[in-house]
């Protein structure tokens, strides 16, 4: 990460904090029933979203998952529109039609979160074909979890992407749990990353809580993809701090394991410490960032709360067009 500017590192830190605080706020709003339905916070996994999205350009695509808030924010999503969507408001990214699991933005080249585990993996193949046909060096990042890597479409899609040498970077966020199923018990080989060899593509197994490592690996995979060398599979090992959703106490998780990740492997704290050790930021800077981000998030809640609900009459008119 030596060739990354100081400014870029600070931006990455801000994004990490932005995701952390946004997710904390959504959990709070869920617990007070302002957000309902399903909510899958990405607390503890922030470094993957930020490291990966910082390693590509604004013209590159991402395909996300049900645990996708971090990906959206890292790609530059507007917090007001995200929060309004979570509150089901007409001003939200999806006009209140989609909620947490369906946020998408054409401008940001964000091809959608997804409510179906593994559902986005085949879609990334098509975006890969599109980039290849356009021939202008764009790439696609496809995020998915350890659970999705056991799904049939994972095999079909990685095989097809490799056969056609498509510029797709497959990033498995192995957070150890697919709802309650631990990946140690559900993945037949030692690592998800080992599966890359079946598809004739490079496989990387990395510490997903280390932003620098994520950034550098994705950068390399993206460079390879841009050169026409085809897809890569990156297993970014991380930890889902919470349950599957805020109402899941995670009784199936080991307490020592949870403590270890929260104390030793906090991606936000560790990156903060790193930048302080490098003399790039000070405590005062952190306080300033926290204040700025708190204001952005409070503003987004205010925007969402003050936004109108979708109109029923308009809905009934729209239905006729479907």
């Amino acid at each position: 990460m030596t060739n990354i500017s100081k400014e870029a590192k600070i931006e990455m830190l801000k994004k990490l904090i932005e995701i952390r605080r946004f997710e904390e706020k959504t959990v709070q709003l869920y617990q007070t029933a302002k957000i309902w339905g399903y909510l899958h916070p990405s607390l503890g996994q922030e470094a993957i979203a930020v490291g990966a999205c910082s390693a590509i350009t604004g013209d590159d695509y991402i395909v996300s998952t049900h645990r996708g808030h971090g990906h959206c924010i890292a790609k530059g999503a507007n917090l007001n529109l995200m929060m309004a969507e979570l509150l089901g408001k007409a001003t939200g990214y999806c006009k209140g039609r989609g909620g947490s699991m369906h946020i998408a933005d054409t401008e940001l080249k964000m091809l959608g979160a997804n409510g179906i585990v593994g559902g986005g993996i085949p879609i990334s193949v098509g975006a890969g074909f599109s980039c290849k046909m356009d021939g202008n060096g764009k790439v696609v990042i496809c995020f998915f979890g350890d659970g999705a890597s056991n799904n049939g479409v994972f095999h079909e899609s990685l095989n097809m992407a490799s056969v056609f040498k498509l510029p797709v970077i497959y990033i498995c966020e192995n957070n150890l749990y697919a709802i309650s199923m631990c990946s140690r018990e559900s993945v037949a080989c030692k690592n998800v990353g080992d599966r890359a060899s079946s598809y004739g593509m490079p496989g990387y197994i990395i510490d997903g809580n280390d932003l620098t490592e994520v950034y550098e690996t994705v950068k390399k995979a993206a460079d390879d993809a841009r050169k026409g060398n085809g897809p890569s599979l990156i297993e970014a090992q991380t930890y889902r701090w919470g349950g599957h959703h805020p109402n899941d106490p995670g009784a199936y998780k080991d307490k020592e394991e949870a403590d270890y990740y929260k104390k030793e492997k906090d991606p936000v704290v560790n990156f903060k410490k790193k930048l302080m050790a490098e003399g790039i930021i000070t405590d005062r800077d952190i306080d300033k960032f926290e204040d700025e981000i708190k204001k952005m998030i409070d503003d987004s809640v205010k925007f969402a709360e003050e936004s109108p609900e979708p109109e029923l009459d308009k809905f009934l008119e729209e239905v006729k067009q479907i």
Binding site: L111, P122, G126, F129, E156, S157, M160
Partner: peptide
Amino acid sequence: PERVINTPISEAAIIGAGIGAALTGYRP
């Protein structure tokens, strides 16, 4: 072969590929 893409037997990936390309400016 760039515009007539002959695929492996992978029906879900064929439709997914169609969707992904459609989302990014093509008409598959």
